[in-house]
Nucleic acid binder design. Structure first.
Length: 446
RNA sequence: CGGGGCGUGGCGCAGUCUGGUAGCGCGCAAGUUUUGGGAACUUGAGGCCGCGGGUUCGAAUCCCGCCGCCCCGACCA
């Protein structure tokens, strides 16, 4: 049994290793009655997140570590694509939203009044909380782009977004406040946009692959806007998904229900498609974990975002937009990768790689072995959560299964007498007795 | 925004119909016995029964209003 190395050190201030006896959160046997979705039940029972109000969650130490890891994977892939990370404000003035018309048409937009006090119906509002950032990023980037030499250019941010969903639900899958990576690309022409768009598809696939959802995430044709026939969604197959999609057999492609009735559109996607062929499409429930879209000049027109080409002509900048929700992705991973005992995190996003279980705290020799292993795992860079609590063995096994760390290392008097510890792989439950030395060398890949 | 359901110690629930000293399980604290898959017993702490008004000698319970939460639907760059 090999314990593969994972690249990338964890990068915020949570000490590693951590002891369960010191962790601010606790597990719970029962989940809140008002949490119905699997992801919210497991995440709250395990103490990863806590709900503040409908559609708004707080991320606790374990949950924040997962979220940060997901965001770092996204960050790496967007950087590799040539994206430059920025951070735009959450608080927006009314004016750019009015300019594109979305102040009045985007009903999930939170509108505020800077006059303060209660915003009653009919009150003049002059601020918004950002649900997406086309209105902000377009004038921002246009201010730096004057020549075709400045293009293409790509910026992105990872940030908390606000949408006043009429009905938040399904835990992290549909919140009013949520994390979003939003990227915007700027081009001189449609071909260049198309080329970048296609490379973004590949980068998105890499993100889902690295998050453990690659084999069940489909590129899905969805309705387009006025400048392109389709947008593309990335849909992760799960029975708990909110969307209905139709998979094209023998491909990694699907068609969203919203356009599957449009015969012309489907023929465009599947050449030779005829009425009656619907039965070849397999219906699935899925969660949208990404959405990419060719904006073309939808936003550069209202803002007058132009560049000067080789001939000295002023031309509109051609744009694309690329969204992905890290917090929703986190919920999707839980929905897809869990069993009756709890969550099963892929190594790439797990809050800790190893859960170290001391079965008999208080026994000097077991405590000594536990502390020694804790230190030696830390020394070789294995992030470890040490269960040093005085709880029964059953409680500890159940809790560690619920927490879903990829590996469990179990130390107890029985193994100690034989000079071994046990290693359990959470994903398949396989256990193996192993000496301390070979345990460490497995973790270092030796 | 329509339809339905629910608010009772930290969590999960009973009690509401038929008004009369607020209960159970889990968790928490202390103790004893346990100790490799959610241990047992004993003792204990912890409640403006969502909020406001009303009826009544008396309201968790009945009436009116409000707030919050969940589910189904509508909606979902």
């Amino acid at each position: 049994m090999k314990l593969p190395l994972r690249g990338g050190k964890f990068c915020h201030g949570v000490p590693s290793p951590m002891r369960l006896s010191r962790l601010v959160t606790h597990t719970s046997k029962e989940s809140s009655r008002s949490e119905v979705s699997l992801n919210a039940q497991l995440l709250t029972r395990a103490g990863y997140v806590s709900r503040l109000m409908a559609g708004v969650y707080q991320f606790l130490p374990l949950g924040l570590r997962v979220l940060t890891r997901i965001e770092n994977i996204i960050r790496e892939e967007m950087n590799a694509l040539g994206g430059q990370e920025i951070l735009m404000p959450t608080l927006h003035p009314r004016e750019p939203w009015a300019k594109t018309g979305r102040w009045d048409t985007l009903d999930v937009l939170y509108r505020l009044s800077s006059e303060g006090g209660v915003v009653a119906p009919g009150t003049a509002c002059d601020l918004a909380l950002g649900p997406t950032h086309e209105e902000i990023v377009t004038p921002l980037v246009a201010g730096f782009v004057h020549s075709y030499r400045d293009l293409p250019t790509v910026v992105y941010q990872i940030q908390t977004k606000f949408r006043n969903e009429p009905r938040p639900k399904s835990g992290l899958l549909r919140g009013r406040e949520f994390r979003m990576k939003d990227m915007y690309s700027f081009h001189t022409n449609q071909d260049d946009l198309d080329d970048f768009y296609n490379r973004a598809v590949v980068a998105y696939r890499r993100v889902y692959e690295r998050c453990g959802l690659g084999d069940r995430t489909l590129l899905t044709y969805a309705s387009g806007g006025s400048f392109s026939r389709y947008s593309h969604e990335f849909q992760t197959l799960t029975p708990y998904g909110e969307d209905t999609i139709y998979r094209i057999p023998d491909t990694e492609l699907a068609i969203n229900r919203e356009i599957v009735g449009d015969l012309d559109a489907v023929r465009d996607i599947i050449p030779g498609y005829k009425p009656g062929d619907e039965k070849m499409l397999q219906e699935h429930k899925a969660i949208e974990v990404g959405n990419i879209f060719k904006l073309v000049t939808r936003f550069s027109d209202p803002f007058g975002a132009t560049y000067t080409d080789r001939d000295g002509e002023r031309c509109p900048i051609i744009m694309g937009t690329y969204g992905m929700g890290p917090s929703r992705l986190m919920g999707a991973i839980v929905e897809c990768l869990s069993d009756d005992h709890g969550m099963i995190w892929p190594e790439s996003v797990a809050p800790y790689r190893v859960g170290l279980i001391n079965l008999k705290p208080g026994a000097a020799d077991v405590d000594a072995l536990g502390a020694d292993l804790e230190q030696r795992l830390a020394a070789i860079g294995i992030e470890t959560l040490y269960d040093d609590r005085t709880e029964s063995a059953g409680v500890k096994f159940a809790d560690m299964d619920l927490l879903g760390l990829p590996w469990q290392v179990i130390v107890g008097p029985r193994g100690l007498a034989k000079g071994v510890v046990e290693v359990k792989k959470r994903a398949d439950g396989q256990r193996q007795e192993i000496s301390v030395e070979s345990l460490l060398s497995h973790f270092t890949g030796g």
